[in-house]
Design a binder for these strands. Structure first.
Length: 240
DNA sequence: ACTATTTGACCCGC
DNA sequence: GCGGGTCAAATAGT
């Protein structure tokens, strides 16, 4: 493979994931409070970046700076949490008929637990770079529904501080010894080995939780971990 | 041999 | 004491 192909694949996978999420958001517009523009941007960025590899290496990814970025929608938290906790703890919930395999981050499983209120186990992942880059982002994946169609709930906790380097040059990763974890090795235990394709719309059921009373509307809070705050643009953006 | 995953133990808040 | 989250030794995979 040519130089950068692996990165391009990752970006394309991310774009594909965004397209899937965009479809879901569009399908459930009535229950989603998330702007779709950032999702479009994400998809377009993936194309732009990949094309740039074949054309000019200086081509910048699509990004209309005049556009306002979507304000991240934070998931509801327990009212018992104080404000300082609310500021530092970010939580995003996403339901999908298949576990999210390519959310652009590298995860390492560190636990699995049987949840009392559910017949399915909950899997715990933390950022693979948690030690190297002091990234405290974690996610939990749990099947919350299996009939009539399966629904997996992915809850993202914490903020990635490793994003800028997530798609860094392979040499960089070698240099800091953090490239030992393959991207696709983490989620295989939870999902099909093949890339998730666009799921049938009828399978994309909106899960109304029986065991979580604080989640009223399903909010596709995908923008935050796809297009983060202003200082955390796409991970493939070159560092200054 | 090395790394990722598994899984029971442990910790902690309620 | 219970339930959920994390740790870490054992195990599996390469």
């Amino acid at each position: 493979m040519f130089h950068g192909a692996e990165k391009a694949v990752e970006v394309l996978l991310r774009g594909q994931e965004s397209a899937n999420l965009l479809k879901m958001v569009l399908e459930h517009q009535t229950t989603s409070s998330v702007s779709i523009e950032p999702l479009f941007d994400t998809v377009l960025d993936s194309f732009s970046f990949t094309l740039s590899l074949f054309t000019s290496p200086n081509t910048q990814p699509h990004r209309d700076s005049s556009q306002s970025k979507a304000t991240p929608v934070k998931a509801r938290k327990s009212p018992k949490k104080n404000s300082s906790e609310e500021e530092c703890l970010e939580q995003y919930i996403h339901d999908s008929p298949t576990p999210i395999c390519n959310d652009g981050f590298t995860w390492r499983k560190y636990g699995q637990k049987k949840i009392k209120a559910s017949s399915h186990q909950r899997c715990y992942y933390r950022c693979a770079y948690s030690k190297d880059r002091n990234c405290n982002a974690t996610k939990r994946v749990q099947q919350i529904q299996d009939s009539p169609s399966s629904v997996y709930r992915t809850t993202y906790l914490g903020k990635h501080v490793c994003e800028v380097n997530a798609f860094s040059e392979p040499d960089d990763d070698i240099a800091n010894g953090s490239n030992m974890i393959r991207f696709d090795s983490v989620d295989q235990a939870m999902s099909d080995p093949v890339m998730p394709q666009l799921a049938p719309v009828e399978q994309q059921a909106i899960a109304i939780e029986e065991d979580t009373d604080h989640i009223v509307n399903l909010e596709f809070d995908v923008n935050e971990f796809l297009v983060d705050d202003d200082d955390e643009l796409w991970a493939y953006q070159l560092p200054p």
